[in-house]
Amino acid sequence: MSVSIDISGLSHERIHVVPSPLAELGMALHALSEPGHHPGLQGWATAVSTRLDPCLADRLCEADFLWRSTFSDVFAPFAGLPGQSTLPGATLAEELDQLDKLTDEQFVDAALEFTCQSTYSEPDRNLLADPAVQRRALDLAAARGPQQVKFTQRLLDEPPVVRAWLRKLLEDCDEAFFADTWARLSHQLAADARLKTDLLRRKGLAEALKALSGAVSLDESEQLITVDKITTGRTTTGSGGLVLVPTSLGWPHVMVLHRKGWQACITYPISAPGLTAPPTVEQLTRRMAALAHPVRMRLCRHLARGSYTTSELADAHGMTAPEISRHLSVLKKADLITTRRRGRYVQHQLDISVVSRLGSDFIEGVLR
């Protein structure tokens, strides 16, 4: 599975490598709510979490589904502005102003990405006027939990109120911890952007994309960028541009914004924190055997993004719930996934800290 970007007719002048403070804030919030995805940031996450005002911490918990498992396009508002040529702002305030310029329909659609429902392939949805579409959004939110249902209903009923609430929340995060983090990271991100821009000019787009990530490639004959992802999607730059956004806090995630009508954007990591110690050889053998099955590998690629119910996985992979349950059982016995109950729903998630160690575990195991 992959996401592809048709770049036919795209000149190098319309390709930009630009850091985004709002995107990095989104990554920071994700790392705080899902520290298992970022073992190298646990010290930073712990330090920030312990200093947070309890009121702000509660507000972040209320909204963490917006960034826990899905990188919502509300963190890349520049891409949704008319003309598909706007770049990220130089400051967080500028990008929050860009967020305010999105239509209510754009904002609601992007904010509802947490529901597992891909809205990219539904360009004619009318979230704010079609009762059937709204009921579907609420049904999907129900599988996520009561907070998501409450948020979805509020979002559909009062988009301006939610927009103002989100902006205030992000501004408070900036004041509480992100301004200091951005001051430390912005120079590193700007330096990487300059290096990638220079590489693009000297050696071309193929070499620049190769430097972003091994998951990104270019078929020059087809004029097609392909990014290895768990989803399948396609977009085109058309008359717009392509924006490459470096992130320091986002490793190992590579995100592709391919929403219909929005400017294409790839967010790529610039650093890879270190990992932790290995398990026993017996555990390693069991885990590698569990991952040898192609269906379980596909499930792992899905579960790496967040926690999902058996029925959600069955729907996403075109299988029956009993078939999914059998594969989940094997993964659970290998200690590769964790399970938790949220009300009447049981959700499963890949244990990133375990999977991230498999390579070094194998080397130590065969040399021991």
Results as ranks from 00 to 15, higher is better:
S239A: 14
R144D: 12
V18M: 07
Y345K: 03
P77F: 11
R298K: 01
T232L: 13
S121W: 06
G36V: 04
T236D: 13
A110D: 04
H258D: 15
T70Y: 10
Y345L: 08
S121Q: 11
G240F: 12
H37L: 15
S85N: 09
I363Q: 08
L358F: 11
L336F: 09
R163V: 04
S271D: 14
Q188V: 10
D124F: 07
L224N: 07
T339V: 12
T338R: 11
D53C: 02
R136D: 15
A183L: 12
D192Y: 01
P294Y: 05
S33N: 08
S271N: 05
R234F: 08
E175F: 01
T285V: 13
A76I: 06
S248D: 06
T115V: 09
G343W: 13
T231R: 11
A23L: 12
A47F: 10
I7F: 04
R68D: 11
A321M: 04
L367P: 00
S360D: 15
T231L: 13
L32N: 00
L22E: 10
E62Y: 04
L218F: 10
E34G: 01
V354D: 08
L92D: 05
I270M: 02
E364C: 00
L169S: 05
T339Y: 06
P273N: 13
S11N: 07
A206I: 04
S69D: 15
P160I: 02
A164Y: 07
S356H: 11
R136V: 03
G365A: 15
W182G: 01
T320I: 09
D6H: 04
M288D: 12
T197W: 09
E282H: 07
D109E: 14
Y345V: 12
R305A: 12
P35D: 14
T285E: 14
D64L: 09
D335N: 12
A314E: 12
D198K: 01
C300G: 10
R286L: 14
A176C: 02
L25I: 01
A110F: 04
T237F: 09
S271H: 07
A141Y: 02
A176I: 04
A28K: 01
G306Y: 08
G365F: 11
E62K: 02
P146C: 02
G83R: 08
H38F: 15
A76M: 13
L96V: 07
L29C: 08
L32Y: 06
A63V: 10
P39N: 13
A63I: 02
T226N: 06
L275Y: 03
L249H: 04
R326I: 01
Q223F: 03
I363A: 10
S186Y: 09
R68G: 01
C55V: 14
C116L: 13
V161E: 15
E312A: 11
H258P: 00
